[in-house]
């Protein structure tokens, strides 16, 4: 500083006067910015946090099991629903029947009140159309009865607790109706059995003439079993 004492390069009065202008400072935001940068520069490196179990990752992890479970539940639901609505009902094992005997129960079912059937078809929508394409079966009345169940019961049967009850109900309905149907069909045959041999054979011949060959053959077999020594009629083999 000795050099600055030189009058030419230092003026004490000017220096003192200049000191009076020292009221200007950098703005506070600038101070903060610089200090923050300085502190960050020497801050110890932050330990890299373990990769968080991201939401995307967890979603990807669960996607496959959830999709699988959903598929299984949906498939089970569809199968159950199809069973309940009769789409997938197992056909009762019946002996070979003639077309007329098969048509009989269906005709009986058709005798249900028209209003009832209309309501039924309106309620069932497309499923009724599907069932109408299916061949008439003796179980048709049972199926129709099941279809007439209120929709709420069908919907609730989707629930696992109620499903066995619905299945049981279905089975009982079939059991109640099937014997009745079988009795109905067997009635003329039983009547024939009770007839004397001659009349029985006449009945068989009538069946043949009517084209009910299967029935005639079954009746004949039964006749032969009952009366093995009775002279057998000779008919032309038409079937």
């Amino acid at each position: 500083m000795k050099n600055l004492r030189d009058w030419e390069s230092h003026d004490e009065t000017l220096s003192i006067l200049y000191q009076a202008t020292h009221d200007i400072e950098p703005p506070a935001w600038l101070d903060e910015r610089i200090l923050t940068a300085a502190h960050r520069a020497v801050a110890p490196p932050q330990p890299t946090p373990a990769t968080p179990y991201s939401r995307r990752r967890s979603v990807r992890f669960w996607a496959m099991p959830v999709a699988l479970a959903a598929t299984v539940i949906m498939a089970a639901g569809i199968v159950r629903l199809a069973r309940e609505t009769g789409e997938w009902a197992p056909r009762p094992q019946m002996p070979m029947e003639s077309p007329s005997s098969l048509a009989e129960p269906a005709a009986k079912a058709d005798t249900a009140p028209a209003g009832q059937r209309t309501a039924e078809s309106a309620h069932q929508g497309s499923s009724s159309a599907t069932s109408s394409l299916a061949p008439a079966s003796p179980a048709a009345p049972a199926i129709r009865m099941m279809r007439m169940a209120p929709p709420s019961s069908a919907a609730s049967s989707m629930q696992e607790k109620k499903a066995p009850i619905a299945e049981e109900q279905h089975r009982q309905d079939i059991l109640q109706i099937a014997p009745a149907m079988r009795d109905e069909e067997a009635k003329p045959e039983r009547q024939a059995v009770d007839r004397p041999p001659k009349e029985w054979l006449a009945h068989i011949a009538k069946l043949r003439r009517q084209g009910r060959i299967a029935e005639a053959r079954a009746s004949l077999e039964e006749f032969q079993r009952r009366y093995p020594d009775y002279p057998q009629p000779i008919w032309e083999e038409t079937d």
């Binding site: 400072e25 950098p26 101070d31 200090l35 020497v42 801050a43």
Partner: peptide, 18 residues
């Protein structure tokens, strides 16, 4: 030592800014 910088800055910011 970040506090050392804070002291340095406080000391010199005014003259340098002016």
């Amino acid at each position: 030592d970040a506090s050392a910088f804070t002291r340095l800055y406080a000391r010199h910011k005014g003259p340098l800014y002016r």
